[in-house]
Amino acid sequence: MPITYYIFLAVIIFCIGVTGVLTRRNSIIVFMCIELMLNAVNLLLVAFSKMHHQRMLVLDAANVTAGTESQLFVFFIMVVAAAEVSVGLAIIVMMYRAVHSVDINFLNRLKN
């Protein structure tokens, strides 16, 4: 599988996420599109890790852990995304309690 296929797939999913952030008005869906973009980046990191692993195996067949680092990066991205979602949804719930809407047109000011 050429690496460009994975790059194109990740770019397409990332741009779908960007389009969703730009066009949708519901702040929860905007948040979900951000998750989509994070996942596209994760997919690309794993693909590059696999490619690097194969390159390193050609040089040194005993080095079976080459390319593990980027999978750990993906792991940490998931950790940060989970923390981000919990705080972000708490903010959205708080805002919904204040203005009874999650439309981002109402959320263009911080005060009230």
């Binding site: 690496i3 397409i12 741009c15 960007v18 696999k50 692993h53």
Partner: peptide, 29 residues
């Protein structure tokens, strides 16, 4: 805007001689 971003990124990253993941199932990373 999103479609333009996609077209530009695909055009920029399109290499003629791509690296190939030859054995996707092999390895143990």
């Amino acid at each position: 805007a999103g479609g333009m971003l996609m077209v530009i990124m695909i055009a920029a990253l399109n290499t003629t001689e791509p690296a190939v993941i030859s054995q996707p199932g092999a390895g143990q990373i």
